[in-house]
Design a protein around this nucleic acid. Structure first.
Lengths: 215, 215
DNA sequence: TACCCATACAGGTAAAACCCTATTATTAAA
DNA sequence: TTTAATAATAGGGTTTTACCTGTATGGGTA
């Protein structure tokens, strides 16, 4: 028998978890060390068992300690354990959050069975499973363009916001825009009110969140 | 003959550009509309020719108007034209910048010839060519962890910086950290001087650039 | 013990940021 | 032509930031 990969499963759907176990064992090159119902349960299982998993199949939606928390905990406490997310959610924010928290791959629960086998092997050999799902999502997230006008910012206000997200003083901004400092102050007040900003820090964060400026 | 893809080439290395043309024509399913030496030249070629390209093979390092500018211009003015970056640079920032500016793929100039064919076909059918190079780079960029300590920030200063990147006033920060506002002011001065920051906006940008806070 | 050094904190001040309430100029609409 | 709306500006006041210099305390350590 070739090298055997040690797998752990973390999913609160017991039925799904155990059928997953069957599937994984059927691959021939994998063993399932333990199954946990949530992150806390998994932490317990880690101490109870001497053998540590190579890969954790991790669900997102779970009670007590969800997949995000668990992934982060694993990344920080057992960085050598690889997380393969197995979720029903295919929304951008879930995917990005899991990748951000260190997941080495992201599979949808309705993927074909051999995809799981492929993903496990890819992760073990290359360190990451590059599914189109993840790749597309990341690319889209990166390419999301400025949404200035959709925010209701006029040209001149947009320019103001961009400059305000630099170390310039308002006086300098006024000079740069050829406007009176008082006008700039007017922009400031309008924008603060419109977007519920408390101070210039809020404005900077707003500009960055909405891709109005590069960081 | 199957459907024919219309290609344009933008590269200041004339020799490489024309050999690229030969290669592309040899694929059988592609035509080369025109070759440009830089972005400006390409803009001119676009108006001179009635037929518009499906894909532009775009180099990055060019005189007059480089690949970044050109990609951005294409994205904003001809969003239906797909950019396939063809560069010698494999550094993270170049890749990310091009993807950010809308490139549909990123190929290194020393890729095997059939990779180019594959990339063109992938882009035409799926809208994006998911090379491992790009996927890995994006994943890494997303997973880059905090580098706080490497910056030389002490625990308490780090906490201060994180709080300063919110809408809190320094007084509020002091209360939250159970320190005198004067102490906080001391931190501020130290950090400003150490990292050459002019004001709080600079501090916020610094925190974000160094992944000290999430945006 | 005396000295060095880092941390927490004070006083004082000028500049910038923040906020409210007007007043003009221009322009579009009635 | 009056009316309404919008952009640019002012006046004037409070709060926060930003900067400088200086002191008290508590370790280390020669």
């Amino acid at each position: 028998m070739q090298q055997s990969y040690k797998i752990a499963i973390v999913d609160d759907h017991t039925l799904l978890a155990s059928s997953l176990e069957q599937l994984i064992v059927s691959f021939g090159n994998c063993r399932v060390l333990h199954i946990s119902k949530n992150g806390k349960d998994f932490q317990q299982n880690l101490v109870n068992h001497v053998e540590k998993p190579d890969i954790v199949l991790l669900d997102i939606n779970m009670p007590v300690m969800d997949g995000f928390e668990t992934a982060l905990w694993i990344k920080e406490n057992h960085p050598y354990i690889k997380v393969l997310t197995l979720s029903m959610e295919d929304d951008e924010s879930s995917i990005i959050k899991m990748i951000h928290k260190g997941a080495k791959g992201y599979l949808l629960k309705d993927s074909p069975p051999d995809t799981l086998k492929l993903a496990i092997e890819e992760i073990m050999s290359n360190g990451f499973y590059h599914s189109d799902l993840v790749a597309n999502t990341l690319v889209q997230a990166f390419q999301k363009g400025p949404v200035a006008s959709e925010l209701g910012l006029k040209d001149t206000e947009l320019q103001f916001v961009k400059l305000a997200a630099t170390e310039r003083t308002y006086k300098e901004i006024a000079a740069e825009m050829n406007l009176s400092p008082k006008t700039i102050d007017g922009y400031r007040q309008d924008v603060f009110k419109r977007y519920n900003l408390k101070n210039r820090v809020g404005l900077v964060l707003f500009a960055i969140k909405n891709d109005l400026v590069e960081v």
